[in-house]
Amino acid sequence: MDVQVKETKELVMGKPNLEVFSATLQDLAAGDQDIIVVTSDSRGSGKLVPFGQKYPKQMVEVGIVEQNLVGVAAGLASAGKKVFAVSPACFLTARALEQIKNDVAYSDNPVKLIGISAGVSYGALGTTHHSLHDYAVCRAINNLMVVAPADNVETEQSIRLAAALDRPIYIRFGKKPMPFLHAEDQTFEFGKARMITDGKDLAIIGTGETVHPALLAAQQLEAQYGIKTSVVSMHTIKPLDTELLDKLSARGCPILTVEEHMVHGGLGEACASYLFQKGCTNKFRIMGIPDEYTVTGSQVEIFDHYGISAPGITSVALDLLDGNFRMVKK
């Protein structure tokens, strides 16, 4: 269905989550010498140059050796350091996957694995630099939490909570500025999704940078069709907030998931696995990157190409609602 979309509500634009991550780390390091950042020649792309200048003794550069980035981080964490291992998500969760599985998760060394420039953030640099497999592989590893914060608030809170967390975690985010999706004073905890809007006709569950287009679609659905949508930021993909899924499912409304990840093994399949094993009969659709090499383009162009956009999500939502709506205005 071809849908014309106009933004109905201006969102306040924030910074790239990457910059918030870096600023939060500096703040944490100011009061805690045990905060250690390990980088694989990634301090520039990780916006960590100021951190390195300010806290040189708390930064360990290992060079371009992702396996050792994680192995060394595991050793530092085992010795009591609060270690953030930072590398582009594509390399971190592929090149170093065995170290993540064994040295971090299996050995229970509480490393904070930070996948930067995640998903298709690198745009036209192509498949080698995209991480569209990371939710799937990290979900399949025992004792590893998987988090994709949506906005600056969620990013800052994720980093603060991760610093104090005594178990392994993988956090990934992109590098483009993100709008504020909700008030700063909302509580944040891992495993507890955040309702951005609450509507009974439809639920759109996003994670990371797809929550924004989900919210824009929801605004349009209401403005044009009077459809009331719940937009959820499922920032923690593992463990899933099953309580909220139960609540949404009980409403009987269609459920649509949107992720910056291949449609296999990510947020959508995690939600589907839970819901359908519970016997839920809600209409359900997974939106993400299909099982193909992505089209060339910027992150936004790739999103648009695959419908991870306000018009794309709106179109799928209307299809799911199967005519159970009426046009309220053009």
Binding site: G71, V72, A73, L76, S78, A79, G80
Partner: peptide, 11 residues
């Protein structure tokens, strides 16, 4: 060995 490098750095 990589884990030991991390332990040695921490020490």
């Amino acid at each position: 060995l990589p884990i030991c490098v991390g332990e040695s750095l921490a020490a």
